[in-house]
Simulated assay, not measured.
Amino acid sequence: MKAHLRRAVTALAASALALPLAACGGSEDSGVRMSDDITVGLLLPENQAARYEKFDKPVIEEKIGQLTNGKGKVVYANARQDAALQMKQLETMVDDQVDVVILGAVDAKAIAAGVEKADKAGIPVVAFDRLAEGPIDAYTSFDNEEVGRVQGEALLKALGDKAKDGQIVMMHGAVTDPNAALFKKGVKSVLDGKVNVGKEYDTKEWKPENATANMEEAISELGADAITGVYSANDGMAGGIVTALKAGGLGKLPPITGQDAELAGVQRIVAGEQYMTVYKPYAPEAAAAAEMAILLARGISLGAIAQADVDSATAQDVPSVLVPVVALTQDNIKDTVLQDGVYSVDEICTEKYKDDCAALGLA
């Protein structure tokens, strides 16, 4: 990871511990709640991607504990990609009078009525990772257009001077996820006019099996040998794409992008089955969500942490924290997920990948 990125990530993570505690010193500020007895509702969108329950949830829970001297409580629910279920979960948390909600929306538009209900009840909502609509109070995510640009630039690098020799397939995410539109915008800003797009899909619910079906259709219509590259918006779908390409009889897979640095995605990169993924440092994103939630619950301004303002379709100038990202390839596995302790060598270099790891100097 580049030094400037690591410094930014480290500084942001450190701020999640320091700022609320420092801010609490201002007891004379009107409206500031000094109690550590804070209940945070945590709503995450799905469990298809490993990141939400493996990385985000534990970090948020740990930070909430640290920021409340162990007295804060996290009430958790996962919507399992079901927008109607998530609405019920949010409504239950509002009815139970949690102090603040961290919300990773399944469907950014559909959840707006629930956010409105929370707002009317005086419960602040932090939009986490996905920009939910409605009167949200804060937002933390990654620069999602930059994610798409990073993916597009990596794919162009992999294609080299043969970028327009064949056709690429573009596998975007779910239309219900506003981030998918931002990834799409970013990648298209890089690839438009520089590659030939043979087929393009919006993948329902981000599911790998839907990506497999889409890819099978693309292979049938374009021919396996004509596909020179695949833009996949995330690692889960990249796995489904690899499945389809292998079944299609390709001896050598074309470069395939991804996102989230999931363990299976990193292992495919080690094996040469996936060209890259986008490594997004989850800890500082989750820490920022925890910090903003506690600040809001205490009635303290977000000015010290929110370095940006973001507009949604229904809210303007939402205080936001946007965390930088980096392209992960075979060349920088050591400097990213290994150095940051996301995975160990033993986790990546299982028996199946030992030879590939040895060739990369990882084992």
Rank of each mutant, 00 (worst) to 15 (best):
residue 298 R to K: 15
residue 222 L to I: 05
residue 69 N to T: 10
residue 290 A to G: 15
residue 218 A to N: 09
residue 11 A to W: 07
residue 100 V to A: 03
residue 249 G to N: 11
residue 107 D to V: 04
residue 327 A to C: 05
residue 235 D to C: 06
residue 44 L to F: 11
residue 307 Q to H: 14
residue 259 Q to E: 13
residue 355 D to E: 11
residue 137 D to P: 00
residue 196 N to G: 04
residue 230 V to T: 06
residue 73 K to T: 13
residue 337 V to G: 02
residue 152 G to W: 04
residue 4 H to E: 15
residue 19 L to P: 01
residue 127 A to W: 01
residue 314 T to H: 11
residue 195 V to C: 08
residue 219 I to C: 03
residue 290 A to F: 02
residue 352 K to I: 06
residue 24 C to W: 07
residue 66 Q to V: 06
residue 191 L to E: 04
residue 104 G to R: 02
residue 325 V to D: 12
residue 249 G to L: 08
residue 347 E to I: 02
residue 190 V to T: 13
residue 260 D to P: 02
residue 103 L to K: 04
residue 31 G to E: 09
residue 182 L to R: 10
residue 354 K to R: 12
residue 40 V to Y: 00
residue 190 V to Q: 04
residue 302 L to C: 02
residue 34 M to Q: 14
residue 268 R to Y: 08
residue 312 S to I: 02
residue 102 I to T: 01
residue 95 D to Q: 14
residue 30 S to D: 13
residue 125 V to P: 02
residue 82 D to E: 12
residue 165 D to T: 14
residue 279 Y to K: 01
residue 255 P to T: 10
residue 265 G to C: 11
residue 170 M to S: 09
residue 196 N to A: 08
residue 81 Q to R: 10
residue 84 A to Q: 14
residue 222 L to F: 08
residue 253 L to V: 12
residue 267 Q to D: 06
residue 23 A to D: 14
residue 182 L to N: 10
residue 242 V to M: 14
residue 21 L to I: 12
residue 157 K to H: 14
residue 199 K to S: 09
residue 340 D to V: 05
residue 198 G to L: 05
residue 294 I to F: 06
residue 299 G to Q: 10
residue 317 D to H: 14
residue 168 I to K: 00
residue 351 E to A: 15
residue 73 K to G: 03
residue 88 K to N: 11
residue 150 V to I: 12
residue 357 C to A: 12
residue 275 Y to F: 15
residue 207 K to T: 05
residue 80 R to F: 12
